[in-house]
């Protein structure tokens, strides 16, 4: 079992990396791109037999306190087998 966490900049925060990647995509001829947002992906491997609901609660807490900064970032947490 593992947790997949995606952290992205909030829409209100200027994302110069996303803008630069968007511009590069356009230069490379990839059309139809409306916006690009660059974030980060965190994968956490859980010990076998971990209680799924408890892990969800604990990692949700970790996301809010540590893995993301709620002032500037949003996160999406998913636990998969």
């Amino acid at each position: 079992m593992k947790a997949k966490i995606i952290v992205t900049p909030k829409k209100a925060v200027v994302d110069p990396q996303g803008k630069t990647v968007q511009s590069a995509l356009a230069h490379l001829g990839y059309t139809g791109v409306r916006a690009v947002h660059v974030g980060k992906y965190i994968e956490i491997e859980l010990e076998p037999g971990t209680d799924r609901a408890a892990a969800q609660r604990a990692l949700d807490d970790a996301c809010r306190k540590f893995l993301s900064n709620p002032i500037i970032e949003d996160y999406h947490l998913e636990i998969v087998d």
Binding site: P9, V13, V14, P16, Q17, T20, N69, I71, I72
Partner: peptide
């Protein structure tokens, strides 16, 4: 200090990168 919540706001990547 911002991460610790002792000061408001946050510091992000320079606009120019």
């Amino acid at each position: 200090l911002t991460e610790a919540g002792l000061l408001p706001g946050a510091l992000v990547r320079n606009r120019s990168l």
